[in-house]
Design a protein around this nucleic acid. Structure first.
Lengths: 248, 248
DNA sequence: TCGAATTTGTGCGTATGTATC
DNA sequence: GGATACATACGCACAAATTCG
């Protein structure tokens, strides 16, 4: 069948992958247990686990302790529009969600002090005070986005917009809030990277270990000064960032 | 020292991570061998491996078979500018590379037929012929970008721009080539996702297994028609996509 | 309500083979 | 050949979640 040079776990994964994509195991259906797969393929536990780990990483299946391994719905892709057309969408509801889905945001703000990396991004000194706001976005109860936003206290301290989600400008977005205290946002840069999720991120997104995340480092500039920067963490599987770019 | 509740591999990883970030093992330096680490921490091979796998995933170290585990240069981040300011940069040299670095592109074009996914993206029928061009970008010999570009034969067939990298418009970019055959590109959309690299991608990028990649699905539209779409694959560690966005 | 069985997840000791230096 | 890292595989133990009698 397959090349004999292939390791056992790869053979098992190939067969299962083919069966999943060809519909032998329907979406939401339960795969045979590890013990059953051992018997079927005539291998021990480890190769079966390794094969399932592969499929797990590919987002094809999802393991539930005590229950089984299930075929995931991989048709559903959640798109986040990162560029906004004029007059469309609120500042925080950038999700392109299905009709009727419940989008919810929670947040908390606290005082913190700049680490070396953060100081570099904000153009301030190590240890300088910053206002840190954490956001969490859920769609139908499932967390889809973690945001960590920082603003130098030297910018927002003592103003009416110290708390981003409090007061008259709550939810109005960074440019509007900055405009209210005399800073005109002239530049918005997003740097996108990808990496394995940290333990905290896996928990925050209520996902399984081994998750890959997209990380957006967003910075709002007012002239030569960075007035806000944020880390936006989004699960890599089933999620996309959409950038609508100008054509020249 | 650490909490006793922590697993052995986490303790080993914590110690090594701290030693690396605090400079005990300099960038480019070699970590002790697995056998030495076993002896030092009093654990067996697997926990040491698990710890190194963690650091590997974090991009802190890099294993070379038969040689050792080395501390990576994590200061070097390669940024790809995905938005172009007027009059800057060629169509394919989007890398923000250090002075003097050698940027090289290789490519090959062939005839192919649309899969279901590709047909959906191009708005054509399953099995319709397409012109497929593969690109590979290297910086100082290290592969940093794999591109797979598809154009419907119904668009480019029989024209002078059938081969993107041949003829007078080679390297001129999609909008220019399309303009030459009467299509005005009106829309450029990039969808960014992240996932574990496939075997082929790991090989193409000459990297180790377990690599995480950024995937950009780019589409050029001419009116309501997609005239080109491409998958751009970039290693997730040490690489960033930079989007300069309009402020409204 | 309770407890046993099942199932996945995690951790770890061991062993073998291969490629590289 | 020896040391090394790496990939694969086996066996085992326990934890956590779920299912079911």
């Amino acid at each position: 069948m397959e090349e004999p040079g292939q390791p056992a776990y790869a053979r098992v994964a190939d067969v299962l992958r083919h069966e999943i994509t060809s519909g032998v195991w329907p979406v939401g259906g339960k795969l045979p247990s590890i013990a059953q797969l051992e018997a079927r393929f005539g291998v021990s536990e480890q190769p079966v686990r390794a094969a399932l780990r592969l499929l797990l990483g590919e987002g094809l299946v999802e393991g539930r302790a005590g229950s089984g391994t299930f075929v995931r719905d991989r048709g559903a892709v959640l798109r986040f529009a990162r560029t906004r057309r004029p007059g469309q969408g609120g500042p925080l509801s950038s999700a392109d969600v299905p009709e009727g889905a419940r989008v919810a945001w929670s947040h908390s703000t606290e005082r913190a002090f700049a680490t070396a990396a953060l100081a570099g991004r904000l153009g301030i000194d190590l240890g300088d005070p910053v206002q840190q706001t954490r956001y969490r976005c859920t769609v139908d109860g499932a967390p889809v986005q973690l945001v960590n936003s920082w603003e130098p206290l030297a910018v927002v301290g003592g103003t009416g917009v110290l708390l981003p989600e409090d007061g008259p400008l709550c939810g109005a977005g960074v440019p509007a809030r900055m405009a209210a205290i005399g800073f005109t946002v002239t530049r918005l840069v997003e740097e996108v990277g990808a990496r394995p999720a940290s333990k905290a991120e896996v928990e925050g997104l209520r996902r399984a270990a081994g998750l890959v995340v997209l990380v957006v480092e967003r910075s709002h500039w007012a002239g030569a000064r960075v007035v806000e920067t944020a880390d936006i963490v989004i699960p890599g599987d089933g999620h996309r960032l959409v950038y609508e770019l100008p054509v020249q």
